[in-house]
């Protein structure tokens, strides 16, 4: 048996991982989440703003990382919509445009009374600008130097939300969801830290350790990976219980089932690997 394991084709491991993710996903397993302090800090940052505050939603990710980050972006958008905030969408990723589209669709379809047909007065899509951190440096100093029009080519001076907005130091909160460079780190280094812009972020699990040192001084809070998204969704549901019946408000929670089984599989694989290792050592082959 151990000899078979020693020469195990890694495709069997791949198959096990496929099943570990697919089965709970198909079965729709969800578990209750307890909201951690870090996630509560994010929740409170949005919740404690007066209704109708101005929030910049910088969505810096692409389809590749959408699986991990879209639940966060949707949760941020939904929470802002519940608070009737004015939202400015923007992205530093060329593939970010369609990601913004998903959030604006959510606003229009799920919260029509506040946002339907209110483009320009309740939300605006500034779209993509090339230039990475250079764009951040510009928008925190002078928005219109970088963005003279929105995504539809309308001059920002003709849009009610942006008419009097000199730069994003004037907004009440910056929400960034990012999958890498340019992303959260650049927003902190060039945007929120030098100008004291209250900032919350959502990032991939891999990025989380590099963003941890910025909490709580430069960052108010962070959602790390699917776990963070699920906890945030739970916090929103606890505050707005009517969402409990809305499956779209539980995208992150739904992904925690596959994560649980996949993590248990990983632990099993680590244990198995070690059994083989100690057996090899006993045989004197290691």
């Amino acid at each position: 048996m151990l000899k078979i394991l020693q020469t195990l084709d890694r495709r069997w491991i791949f198959l096990a991982m496929f099943l570990a993710v697919a089965i709970p996903l198909i079965m729709g397993m969800t578990f209750p989440e307890k909201t951690s302090d870090q996630v509560m800090a994010v929740f409170n940052a949005v919740e404690n703003l007066p209704d109708g505050s101005n929030v910049v939603m910088a969505l810096d990710y692409d389809p590749a990382s959408e699986g991990e980050l879209q639940p966060m972006a949707s949760a941020f958008t939904r929470h802002c919509a519940l608070k009737k905030h004015n939202i400015y969408f923007m992205t530093l990723w060329p593939q970010g445009g369609p990601m913004i589209q998903r959030s604006t669709d959510l606003l229009e379809n799920d919260y029509p009374e506040t946002y339907k047909g209110k483009y320009g007065s309740k939300y605006v899509n500034l779209g993509f600008r090339a230039g990475n951190e250079g764009v951040i440096k510009l928008v925190v100093e002078d928005l219109k130097k970088s963005y003279d029009t929105d995504v539809q080519g309308t001059n920002l001076n003709d849009i009610p939300l942006t008419k009097n907005l000199k730069n994003i130091q004037q907004v009440d909160l910056l929400c960034n969801v990012s999958a890498g460079y340019p992303g959260s780190k650049e927003w902190v280094l060039y945007g929120s830290a030098p100008f004291d812009i209250p900032t919350v972020i959502g990032c991939t699990g891999v990025q989380a350790p590099i963003m941890l040192p910025y909490i709580p001084q430069q960052l108010t809070g962070m959602l790390a990976a699917i776990k963070g998204a699920a906890e945030y969704e739970q916090a929103i549901i606890n505050r707005y219980p009517e969402l409990n019946d809305n499956p779209a408000a539980k995208e992150g929670l739904k992904r925690m089932g596959p994560q649980l089984v996949a993590h248990v599989l990983l632990i099993g694989l680590i244990a198995l690997g070690n059994v083989i290792y100690f057996w090899e050592r006993k045989q004197g082959t290691a």
């Binding site: 692409d62 590749a64 699986g67 996949a262 599989l265 990983l266």
Partner: peptide, 24 residues
């Protein structure tokens, strides 16, 4: 979109084989 998501999802498979081999 599906191609990018597929490539990113490969990480889950590679991390399992890496965990099996390297965490000893």
């Amino acid at each position: 979109y599906p191609l990018s998501a597929t490539m990113f999802a490969l990480l889950a498979f590679y991390i399992s084989s890496a965990a099996f081999r390297a965490f000893r």
